[in-house]
Design a protein around this nucleic acid. Sequence first.
DNA 1: ACCTGAACACCGTTCAAGT
DNA 2: ACCTGAACACCGTTCAAGT
Lengths: 223, 223
Amino acid sequence: MAAPKRLNRDALISTALEVADREGLDAVTIRRVAQRHDVTPMALYRHFPDKDGIFDAVIERLLAQVRLPEHDERPWDEQMTELLSGLVEALRPHPNAATLVFSRILSSTPGRDITERTLALLRRSGMPVEQAAETASQTLSSLVALVIAAPGRTGGPEIDEAAAAREQKAALLALPEDRYPHLVAAADAMSSCGSEALYYGRGVDLIVTGMRGAQRPEAVTGR
Amino acid sequence: MAAPKRLNRDALISTALEVADREGLDAVTIRRVAQRHDVTPMALYRHFPDKDGIFDAVIERLLAQVRLPEHDERPWDEQMTELLSGLVEALRPHPNAATLVFSRILSSTPGRDITERTLALLRRSGMPVEQAAETASQTLSSLVALVIAAPGRTGGPEIDEAAAAREQKAALLALPEDRYPHLVAAADAMSSCGSEALYYGRGVDLIVTGMRGAQRPEAVTGR
DNA sequence: ACCTGAACACCGTTCAAGT
DNA sequence: ACCTGAACACCGTTCAAGT
């Protein structure tokens, strides 16, 4: 008879994600995840090839939450906005884990689906294949960056987020005002999101507007 | 008499950066850097408070290379393009280290200078302070993302870059064409930069065009 | 099939010395 | 002032076993 398996892959992924959310990516260790399940570190190797495999699974889960917009006759930029907003929504709750997406979009199935759709919409907008590929790549990584570097985030363990934001703000306000007038004036907005909805809404708009501009060559400056 | 100091802070930073470039960020360890200078790990603690201090110094050096454009009467978007291109040029040779920039732009002097100038140009474009702060934050992190996730980069140790690109391309070409028609068609462009100059030039344009669009409300869709 | 246990080659960092 | 040495509490991972 098979031994009753005590370990569950999905639960392990959840634990890894929780640890990442609460204490940062560096706190996610095989030994720590194992401990939370009252199991030897080596037990995890039944479910993942190695530590990176755990991260792969975490990202796959996050990206799988993204719902692709229905195929319909709406303008491409409207659908693009919906698609990209979906990606942002999926990553927002997990800014620490988001870093892992950079190297993994094309190696997970849901990531490939998102990329495929982005490419499709860019092609529909009139872009040649090569430029669409470049733009898709730039776009998706930029959105990940938006989540990682959202004002108020330190990138660290994030024990007390509000305190970190206050500290950040104080540091900016303490800057010499003659050298950093704008940084001092924007201390508040640079150290915490007034409205996350607005921050991400505008972030997506920045990109989509840039895409639209690429379709109107006269708007592009070049270098 | 003071003992002749064998260790040099700048040289240590160079070593850290070299290791990062060649073998990835994870390969940068205090012990490894120390070993390259024929010194005990503890010797480094004379020059840096801890490991993170080494990373801080690495990023400070990279960002210090960015030359801010002269103050002149050219249009804001032209100056912005120059500024952002300068940042990209500084980071391009060090994609592995670039990840560290996210959490450090505002905590290094050159990073603050870059951010201050970005804010100034956005304000000059007509943006209100809060939006300028948001946009500056989004812009700078997006450019970092461009470097980190440039087609052809795996994010890993990068032993053989060309081989990794070929492998990536083969993986894309092996995808089912009915489900991923665009991904298959764009396999080449998704797995390596045809022209890095074009990739980064268009990347900067994407952002700057997005900024211009924020000044023309009718171009913004919203959500 | 699923998990354990001991071991190996690494980490960052503290503390107490040496010269 | 500058560096060493031993030690501590961690890592990921291999190998060989237990049930």
